[in-house]
Simulated scan of single mutants.
Amino acid sequence: MKPNYRRCVSCGQVALKDSFWRIVRVYPSRKLQLDYGMGRSAYLCPCASCLKEARQKNRLGRALRVPIPDYIYQALSERLTPTK
């Protein structure tokens, strides 16, 4: 895999890392953040099907090795709906 490419934890698609959402387990606090921070990261396609599958099958939790709170999924689902 090339350095600027990442893989979606849900569907397995490989693309440039800028085209994914980044979920970070920050070191050493183990808190979760979106898009920035240093620590263990997981990448997710910005589409409803990948978000739904990642939540149902706990793919983010397994990739980050931490339980994912509902507010993370809520923030990601809000990004799906465009604001007017």
Rank of each mutant, 00 (worst) to 15 (best):
M1P: 09
M1N: 07
M1K: 09
M1E: 10
K2P: 11
K2N: 12
N4H: 12
N4E: 14
Y5V: 12
Y5T: 07
Y5G: 03
R6N: 05
R6S: 02
R6K: 11
R7T: 15
C8I: 08
V9W: 03
S10L: 00
S10D: 01
S10C: 04
S10G: 08
C11I: 07
C11W: 04
G12N: 02
G12S: 01
Q13Y: 06
Q13N: 08
V14C: 00
V14Q: 08
L16E: 14
L16A: 13
K17Y: 03
K17C: 02
K17E: 12
D18Q: 13
D18N: 13
S19R: 14
S19M: 09
F20S: 01
W21F: 12
R22A: 06
I23C: 00
I23V: 15
I23E: 00
V24C: 12
R25C: 06
R25L: 09
Y27F: 11
S29Q: 10
S29R: 11
S29E: 15
R30N: 12
R30Y: 09
L32M: 06
L32V: 01
Q33A: 14
L34V: 10
L34K: 03
D35Q: 11
D35M: 07
D35T: 03
D35S: 09
Y36A: 14
Y36K: 14
Y36T: 13
Y36M: 13
G37D: 06
M38R: 14
M38W: 06
M38A: 13
G39T: 09
G39M: 01
R40Y: 02
R40V: 12
S41K: 10
A42V: 03
A42E: 08
A42H: 07
Y43P: 03
Y43K: 07
C45H: 07
P46Y: 09
C47A: 09
A48I: 10
A48P: 05
A48R: 12
S49V: 10
S49Q: 12
L51F: 06
L51W: 02
K52V: 06
K52I: 02
E53A: 05
E53M: 01
E53C: 00
A54C: 05
A54T: 05
Q56A: 14
N58W: 01
R59L: 15
L60P: 10
R62L: 13
L64P: 00
L64M: 10
L64S: 05
L64G: 07
P69D: 03
P69W: 03
P69A: 04
D70W: 02
D70L: 09
D70K: 10
D70V: 08
Y71G: 00
I72K: 00
I72T: 08
I72A: 06
Y73A: 04
Y73R: 02
Y73N: 03
Q74E: 15
A75C: 04
A75G: 02
A75E: 15
L76M: 09
L76H: 07
L76D: 06
E78Q: 14
E78M: 11
L80I: 12
L80N: 04
L80H: 05
L80V: 02
T81V: 15
T81R: 14
P82E: 13
P82Q: 12
T83L: 13
T83A: 14
T83M: 09
T83V: 12
K84L: 11
K84F: 10
K84T: 14
K84D: 11
